[in-house]
């Protein structure tokens, strides 16, 4: 089917997130206002105005009441999804990058970049049920990683926190004590910076994309490498299909090199791989620049991609897609 082009951002997209019901799509970009869209027809519902810098990522609570955003303006903000009202601001001494709600939405992990001599950190914040009780205190601060943390998410049962970033290593931390529990194998792991990380529906395994032109599937408890998907381009974004054994991988050259080569050379495609057989199924072209964000709708019937070109492309799958036999 023809994709729906959603033009609501002035600058490159950074992150896409569906709510659990799959009816809303949240998009973040380097302009300062995240958007929310109807996930079915691509109509824009509204924007969340208040940030003063690029918004790197967001997460939405289970019942789609609250939105958490992390921004380069050194804050993370809590929003009321329905009214767009800014509820609370967490201030940091460095740009906030990755945000992720824990199961139960009582906790969130927020990462900060290395900035002005500060080390990058992953910080756990308690999220109060009543916004009046909300504080800025961190329940836990994980540090000691060199290189930017591009993504930090909760492990199964909120027991662990998984971080991945520029040093190409995936680490699992105890979410209570902040102790390092496990590190990805240097031999089989990524060779270059990890740009993205996406969990499976039941949080049992997750997919990482890296600038080493591959994506890898890991067990979330043991950090065992299960699969590797090899592409021809640096990978910027990945996601796992919630219904089928498919994964989608997107990327492209560095933005700085894009204009130097033919559009065909860039291969700005979202590539579908069979999750188990590791074989390429197909690709969806369309962006005029590298793909920075990818997300499957939780119903598995559509997906959206966000590009350096500032567009969100919402694709509803053709019936053929569900009949692919490998």
């Amino acid at each position: 089917m023809r994709p729906i082009l959603m033009k609501g951002h002035e600058r490159p997209l950074t992150f896409l997130k569906y709510n659990r019901d799959g009816d809303l799509l949240f998009s973040c970009a380097k302009d300062h206002a995240p958007n929310v869209w109807y996930a079915d027809n691509g109509e824009r519902l509204g924007t969340y105005k208040g940030h003063n810098g690029a918004v790197w990522s967001c997460d939405v609570s289970r019942h789609s009441t609250r939105l958490l955003t992390g921004s380069a303006d050194q804050t993370a903000k809590l929003w009321d999804v329905k009214t767009g009202k800014e509820l609370f601001t967490f201030r940091f001494d460095a740009p906030a990058r990755s945000v992720d709600f824990a199961i139960g939405d009582r906790l969130a992990v927020i990462t900060t970049d290395s900035f002005m001599g500060n080390q990058p950190t992953a910080q756990v914040k308690r999220i109060a049920e009543d916004i009046e009780d909300q504080t800025e205190d961190s329940a836990l601060v994980i540090s000691g990683i060199t290189g930017r943390i591009n993504r930090a998410v909760w492990g199964p049962g909120n027991r662990t926190i998984i971080t991945a970033g520029e040093d190409a290593t995936i680490r699992i931390w105890d979410s209570e004590t902040g102790k390092l529990l496990n590190e990805s194998d240097k031999e089989v792991g990524h060779q270059k910076a990890i740009s993205s990380l996406s969990k499976s529906l039941d949080w049992s395994h997750f997919l990482t994309g890296s600038l080493d032109k591959s994506a890898k599937l890991w067990d979330a408890r043991t950090l065992t490498l299960i699969k590797t998907y090899v592409t021809e381009r640096p990978v910027n974004a990945v996601d796992i299909s919630p219904t089928l054994d498919h994964v989608v991988i997107g990327g492209g050259q560095d933005a700085m090199n894009v204009t130097m080569t033919d559009r065909r050379a860039g291969k700005f495609e979202a590539k579908f791989f069979h999750k188990i057989l590791q074989e390429e199924i197909g690709g969806v072209k369309g962006h005029f620049g590298p793909i920075n964000a990818l997300a499957f709708n939780p119903d598995g019937r559509s997906f959206s991609s966000g590009g350096e070109d500032g567009y969100v492309r919402l694709h509803h799958f053709d019936p053929d897609y569900f009949n692919i036999k490998m």
């Binding site: 289970r62 824990a102 199961i103 139960g104 009582r106 199964p156 049962g157 909120n158 039941d202 049992s204 408890r221």
Partner: peptide
Amino acid sequence: QHEEEREYRMALRG
């Protein structure tokens, strides 16, 4: 594993 943790998750979700 998912099954084993079900109760725990329920607790987390109140």
